[in-house]
Design a protein around this nucleic acid. Sequence first.
DNA 1: CCCGATCAGTTCCTTGAGGGAACCCATTGG
DNA 2: CCAATGGGTTCCCTCAAGGAACTGATCGGG
Lengths: 157, 157
Amino acid sequence: MTQRTRFGDMACSIARTMDVIGEPWSPLILRDVYVGISRFEQLQEDLGISRKVLAERLRWLVEQDVLERREYSAKPPRHEYALTPKGTELVALLMVMVRWGDRWTAGEAGPPVLYRHHECGRLAHVELRCSECDGPMEPTDIDVLPGPGLAAPVPTS
Amino acid sequence: MTQRTRFGDMACSIARTMDVIGEPWSPLILRDVYVGISRFEQLQEDLGISRKVLAERLRWLVEQDVLERREYSAKPPRHEYALTPKGTELVALLMVMVRWGDRWTAGEAGPPVLYRHHECGRLAHVELRCSECDGPMEPTDIDVLPGPGLAAPVPTS
DNA sequence: CCCGATCAGTTCCTTGAGGGAACCCATTGG
DNA sequence: CCAATGGGTTCCCTCAAGGAACTGATCGGG
């Protein structure tokens, strides 16, 4: 019955996140929109993505409330895409992806982009800390326990 | 020529990360291995993934040095998969995915799993901090600058 | 007033990856 | 000797990704 597996219905926040941006173009689209590449033609050229697939992805991301489609010119009807708050928080996930990619795939050449932190003005990367005690919080620093939403079949949809 | 787009060759750490785990089953496989579901049959049953696709994914993840395939019994030849250091650091990415999924997709039911932080013993979630000044480091807190690896065509492969 | 350009898609076709079921092989336990 | 188990492989079908061509609205220029 189900052709492609539906990740959105799983009781797993990883699966539900992958349902939204789990196909590899979406993170790159979000990255581009984040750095100011926000129009259809620009995205298509910058990414080298098929126009068909780009249109599908944008429609999906708008539907998921990750991007917002806004008209910036009415008389020649022109549109651009912008990150919603939900989408902006996804960019945090991209920052962690960048961290891993920099460490394990960048090689000799070094990282393709650098981050300057507004608060301290320095070149920096992101680190994971505990929300409660501020200590480092890496995979080896935690235990995983069942939570209240474990048995729930489908949350909102 | 290229049928599916090769993300591994892009000068972008997001694209290169997505090249490794960018198809939606891989994060779930890593999650399972992380929590101790490490054998082929267990993974297949827990995820409901096609055996064919699971075999392909595992082969790819081992090839990428994210998982390690080890024999835990020789006479009936039996194998299990374990996270390498490279793979363990990917789990940090999953923790951030969980954070986003919990906030935006969990709904009424609440998060399906909880984390207890070893260091402080409390239930916690992960936060992003600056490696240099320890301040919060979210997408709106940084500028993105070109880095040394920008022009590089392909790093290691 | 018609021509070309620009933006933002849509349509059509081909190819190949995901899903599912069945099959295979080595070994062990009864 | 037979069934069961673990760890896959093979086969077939469908659907989604890629790519190129086409559409439609609008403007600017000759």
